[in-house]
Design a protein around this nucleic acid. Structure first.
Length: 440
RNA sequence: GCGUCUGUAGCUCAGUUGGUUAGAGCGCUGGAUUGUGGCUCCGGAGGUCGCAGGUUCGAAUCCUGUUAGACGCCCCA
């Protein structure tokens, strides 16, 4: 009975080519958020169960987290999200931390769910939040960053849309305009959230059920959900002050040329904890057509930790959907042949040449070059072939001939050209060859 | 938690109405060429046909269960 070769359900093994793709994404994320002055933090993998239960409710925590009792009897959870952890960290330094605080992290999370398209049990997310800014400029910045994160990788406006809504506006529509009670509001928000996933007939049936068949309310609802711009809303809504933050935000974004940022009356984003503007980046690729990531304004959870509350605007793009976006739009470079070392030394099958190869490699590494040595006793054609496949740019042949002459045979694998190079000129020659390949 | 589909070599897949030693291409590996890369030729390794029962003289093939994966539903903090 041998051990299984497969990774745990919902998790993935990442081989070098996979890691190159991941790092390409992570490095791009970093470049963008650090360009906005965001600073990196990291939190522990484990947090006490209470933090999540307080935020998300017992049920979801018990059913969808990896939790266990530690040896001291504490109920612990592998983090399913970053918000409680960063809230704790900010709360702990509430008095001394200068505001606004701009913080980001790239970390992994686990949720005990059934894996499916774009969803795994272990996943990586970029989290970035701005703490302590109470006006629309915080949303403006976060949405700008969300936009940049996509365009940084070559995405253009037609490839994605950023949908925006305001939780305060939604509540106004539900309660003041439609006259729904709290329970009806909750149900209607859930239903609107699913608008694109269900048929129109099914939507109408369920909406009718929620308002107990009130024809007047249904007519008003229909008018609202057809709106594609704020000005399409009935006068009673669009003339109310509640639309001002959204109107102001959208006009500022459009002034900046972000024309794929649009109002969407049906955008809901979960239920309880958003308090103002909400938004999500939507993939327009025909094979995806779904929300990639979303965020918005929420009262920071810092008050859970006994300090004065803080306004926060944040978002958390996930690696999986992001990568699928890049693939769908042909924005992911091919990393399959990239080498970990640009140069491979191929000694002959003798101890003397192998030893010399090792020494040479050390010298070259001190000069800043990435060098691998093939110490196997295979034939040279085989070793050369493997070096090519591994993506090496240059190979250095080192046999008895080179040992006695003091000159090394360097082959440029891209051009096929080969030269004898004196040892004292080797570093310069290698650097020149490597650069010529890169610019080719 | 529920549903649909799929599991044959490392990968992509053949496998005829159940018929005896389960195949191909690619990849890996060795040689032709004891010092040089996408060609050619020759050889080799690698499979309890996801697993377990059942039907049958005989099962990769039919039946049942189970497990893993993909994709939906629920959920998505």
């Amino acid at each position: 009975m041998s051990l299984k070769l497969t990774s745990y359900k919902g998790t993935r093994d990442l081989y070098p080519a996979d890691m190159r793709r991941r790092n390409y994404i992570f490095n791009g994320w970093r470049a963008v958020v650090e360009g906005y002055g965001y600073q990196e933090y990291m939190a522990p993998l484990l947090e006490p169960l209470e933090v999540y239960a307080a935020k998300s409710g017992e049920e979801i925590v018990n059913e969808q987290t990896y939790s266990f009792t530690d040896r001291g009897g504490r109920q612990m959870v592998i983090r399913p999200e970053m918000t409680p952890s960063i809230s704790r960290m900010v709360a702990a330094r509430r008095q001394e931390m200068p505001m606004p605080a701009r913080l980001y992290s790239i970390a992994n999370f686990m949720r005990y769910e059934r894996p499916q398209h774009g969803r795994e049990r272990e996943f990586w997310q970029l989290n970035f939040d701005i703490f302590g800014v109470d006006n629309i400029y915080a949303e403006l910045e976060i949405i700008n960053m969300s936009h940049d994160i996509l365009t940084h990788f070559g995405a253009t406006d037609g490839m994605f849309t950023i949908r925006v809504n305001d939780r305060r506006l939604t509540n106004f529509i539900m309660q003041e305009y439609l006259g729904l009670n709290d329970e009806q509001t909750t149900r209607m928000i859930k239903l609107l959230d699913r608008f694109d996933k269900i048929s129109r007939d099914s939507f109408d049936d369920q909406a009718s059920d929620i308002v107990a068949g009130d024809a007047d309310k249904l007519a008003k609802l229909n008018q609202v959900i057809e709106a594609v711009e704020l000005d399409d809303l009935p006068a009673e809504i669009k003339d109310n002050a509640v639309v001002e933050p959204l109107r102001s935000l959208l006009s500022k974004l459009h002034e900046q040329g972000l024309n794929n940022v649009v109002y969407n009356v049906r955008l809901m984003r979960g239920f309880d904890y958003y308090t103002g503007i909400v938004f999500e980046a939507f993939d327009e690729a025909p094979e995806n057509r779904r929300a990639m990531f979303g965020g918005g304004r929420y009262d920071g959870l810092v008050s859970l930790f006994g300090v004065e509350s803080l306004p926060v605007v944040g978002v958390a793009p996930g690696e999986t959907t992001f990568q699928e976006f890049l693939l769908a739009h042909d924005l992911m470079p091919d990393f399959t042949d990239d080498a970990e070392s640009a140069v491979t030394i191929l000694p002959m099958a003798s101890d003397a040449t192998k030893t010399a190869a090792g020494e040479l490699a050390q010298t070259l590494r001190q000069a800043g070059l990435a060098i691998a040595v093939d110490y196997t006793d295979r034939k040279l054609d085989k070793k050369t072939k493997v070096a090519v496949k591994g993506g090496a740019k240059l190979v250095i042949y080192l046999g008895d001939e080179e040992l006695s002459s003091g000159e090394l045979t360097v082959k440029n694998l891209a051009s096929g050209q080969q030269a004898k190079v004196r040892r004292d000129q080797l570093v310069d020659y290698l650097n020149q060859q490597i650069n010529s390949v890169v610019t080719k």
